[in-house]
Design a protein around this nucleic acid. Structure first.
Lengths: 304, 304
DNA sequence: GTCGATCTCTGACTAAGGTCAGAGATCGTG
DNA sequence: CACGATCTCTGACCTTAGTCAGAGATCGAC
């Protein structure tokens, strides 16, 4: 595939150019590990936290701190209430060194932007923003989990909290959210970025539909109809297209389980969600249940 | 400046994501130095060339080759005509190893692209192409050199060769090109990418103008009028906006030397150049000289 | 106060990546 | 063929970036 070669080539090009810039401006005698540490210490941080944030071995961190301490850039003092924990903080010289690194890094970028016109700079930033959105979207993982998994409940809690803030009438989570363990026929998907849950959604088969409908429908209809619920995307990753990806993943998963028609209800105030459903090929139908939160209803026929 | 912070943030983000991908897929027991060497050897390369291409110390290269040789991936044999030089080439196993690395690298990119829709992939590639163009443009250096400097003549030779191919009537370089050393009032600019000359252009003050004009004009007019000539951009970097940058640099330099009006002539077949001049604020005027190559003429008033 | 858990530090060790000073072979030129 | 230049190789050495196994101090719970 040609696209792959293009992306590889871009990666080589960009890292090489970046490397040249960094070597030129930044590589002024300070090893990378020490430089990262100077940034992360900030205005004081305990070693345990530094270790996890930078992913360092405790021995290695200890040695790095000793080296920086020997140069008079960092001091380490015990935690006031926990004698095991130690806290690192920058001295005046350390802050100056950090500011120096910072300004060298800024200079290298300023030198890059300098020859460009205002319009070219804007286009560069817009292209970078575009790549960021797409690469974030591409590296988010989507995975099925039990509906009572901790990540699932964490997402639903955030989802409910947000709806409670957005709906003028509030949101009654106890009544409207799917209870843990209730999803017997269907799939709960969780989206993760760097391991942290940042979105969710579920489809629920016939057994979870309103009693009147499941009674009216035959066995075939039971298998072929499902409802998508609780589609949520964390504000931290909104705007990168994750809602669309989750929705498509739910549809694929449902279709693989024999579902041919999905429906969903939503609130009139969730305009982005409504736009998403329309763009994804859903058509509006009369509302199918009496929940005050499902003011609008949409249906889509799945094609395998 | 906010833009600088944005770019720094993008660089951190992109290198981090890239690093994760590479570590995951590529870092399978082969150190980076050896992997790069396997790629660069290709179908045989002499050590001197490898050293300069990869920027390695001769001792280090020797050791790397010995390590790869010990694994049966590389053989080294003397150069047929120069006994000092040695040539490295891949064995069958070496070629397999390289293909393996190659395919792992492709896999990592394929995994990145996989979750995206066709439209998203296209937007990603377009944004990468945009960044490449702009970063190349920004990292090209533009610098004044004497008009008889080797790089200057190299550019003019390429320029003349190209015009000779493009003009139906051919191009008489001996008559039309500025002779070495003739540029006494003016500046010759050379654009370089990674040290290689990739573009040029010059402005030439009154003393170089046609005799009739310099005679007619007073001393003030002599200083305030100049001609831009021999603006050329190598095909290798065409389309990134270098012509515009060179033109702007020439105008800035001329203005700094007291020039208030620049004019230039061009050939009717150079449509991109004509478009560039119009976009840069030049207006067409009647042709000012009888050269068969200056069928069209443009003028621009410089504002300081 | 005892005991297991937690946190930091030290010493020993490793791999990767790289530098430097010659030694030895070969080449081109006078 | 002598001599300086060129090319490669070897040995010695270095920094960065880790990993691992305890030792020692401290904490919270019992």
């Amino acid at each position: 595939m040609d696209q792959i070669e293009f992306v590889r080539d871009f990666n080589r090009f960009y890292t090489q150019r970046l490397g040249v810039l960094n070597d030129h401006y930044l590589g002024q005698g300070r090893p990378l590990g020490e430089a990262r540490l100077l940034f992360e210490i900030g205005d004081g941080a305990d070693l345990r936290e530094l270790r996890t944030r930078l992913g360092l071995d405790s021995g290695y961190l200890s040695r790095l701190l000793r080296a920086l301490g020997g140069e008079g850039l960092v001091t380490v003092r015990p935690h006031p209430s926990d004698g095991r924990v130690r806290i690192a903080s920058l001295t005046g010289a350390g802050r100056r060194e950090r500011a120096d690194l910072e300004s060298r890094s800024r200079d290298s970028v300023a030198a890059l932007l300098d020859p460009l016109t205002d319009g070219q700079r804007e286009r560069l930033l817009e292209a970078q923003a575009q790549i960021r959105r797409l690469v974030r979207l591409a590296t988010v993982t989507v995975e099925a989990v039990p509906d009572d998994a901790p990540e699932a409940r964490e997402c639903l809690e955030a989802y409910a909290g947000e709806l409670a803030r957005r709906f003028p009438e509030g949101y009654d989570a106890a009544a409207a959210l799917i209870p843990p363990g209730a999803l017997t026929e269907g799939t709960f998907l969780v989206a993760r970025e760097d391991g942290r849950p940042v979105g969710c959604g579920l489809w629920q088969g016939a057994s979870g539909l309103a009693a009147s409908e499941s009674a009216a429908a035959g066995a075939a209809a039971l298998r072929s109809s499902a409802e998508i619920r609780h589609l949520w995307v964390s504000p931290a990753v909104r705007g990168i297209g994750l809602g669309r990806r989750l929705l498509a993943a739910l549809e694929r998963d449902a279709a693989a389980h024999g579902v041919t028609t999905v429906r969903l209800g939503t609130h009139g105030s969730l305009t982005e969600a409504i736009a998403l459903y329309r763009a994804a090929g859903y058509r509006e139908v009369p509302s199918y249940d009496s929940s005050p939160y499902n003011q609008l209803a949409f249906v889509k026929e799945l094609v395998l």
